[in-house]
Amino acid sequence: MTEKPNYSLDITGEVCPMTFVKTKLLVERMPSGEMVEVRLKGAEPLANVPRSLAELGHQIISTVREDGEGADGIHRLLVRKK
């Protein structure tokens, strides 16, 4: 990861729809152009959170699986607020 996020959010213990709700609430409080790194776990949040943020116009910079995790394990999502 080359860009450093301004915020971080760990939603690995949450389930949908709270994964997106908590992420959206943080992004709404952020100034435009700043970034957040979101740690999420599971196939459903991995599919829904980035898609929903992109639909709101935010930029998905990267999605990276953490070392030692399987495909449905913990991922780090980097997002820039529009």
Rank of each mutant, 00 (worst) to 15 (best):
L46E: 04
A47S: 07
T19E: 11
L9S: 02
T63V: 15
R65N: 14
L56M: 15
L53S: 05
C16N: 13
P45R: 07
G68Q: 11
K41W: 00
V49F: 01
L25C: 10
L53P: 05
R39C: 00
E34I: 00
V36M: 00
G42D: 00
G73T: 09
G57Q: 03
T19K: 14
H75R: 11
T23E: 09
E66Y: 14
L46Q: 04
V15P: 04
V27W: 09
V21Q: 09
R65C: 10
E55M: 11
M30A: 13
V38W: 00
G57V: 08
G13K: 08
E69P: 14
L53D: 02
R65A: 12
I11L: 07
A47I: 04
G42S: 01
G70A: 11
I60S: 01
T19M: 15
L25N: 14
M30I: 09
K82R: 11
C16Q: 14
K41V: 05
M30V: 10
V15N: 13
G33L: 01
A71T: 12
S62A: 15
A43R: 05
A47Q: 03
C16R: 11
D67S: 12
I60E: 02
G13A: 08
A43D: 05
R39I: 00
N48M: 05
V79R: 13
M35A: 08
M30R: 11
M18C: 06
M18R: 12
R65K: 13
K41L: 00
S32Q: 14
A47M: 07
D10P: 02
G33Y: 03
V15W: 07
F20W: 12
R39P: 00
V64F: 05
P50W: 01
K22M: 15
G42M: 00
K24V: 09
L9D: 02
H75Q: 11
P45G: 02
M35W: 01
E34C: 04
N6M: 03
M30Q: 10
T63K: 12
A47N: 05
I61S: 06
A54K: 11
G73C: 14
T2G: 09
R29T: 15
P17W: 04
M35S: 08
S8L: 07
H75C: 12
V79W: 06
A47R: 07
D72N: 12
T2S: 06
E44S: 06
L40I: 03
C16E: 14
L9Y: 01
K4E: 03
T12M: 04
I74M: 09
K82L: 13
N6C: 07
R80G: 08
K22W: 08
E28M: 12
H75G: 11
S8E: 05
E34A: 00
A54N: 02
G13N: 08
G73K: 09
D67C: 12
E69M: 13
V49W: 01
L9M: 03
E37G: 00
L53I: 06
T19S: 15
L40N: 03
T63D: 07
E44T: 09
T2V: 06
E69W: 13
R39T: 00
Q59D: 08
E34D: 03
Y7F: 08
I61C: 07
V49Y: 02
R51N: 04
H75I: 10
I11F: 06
R65P: 09
K22E: 13
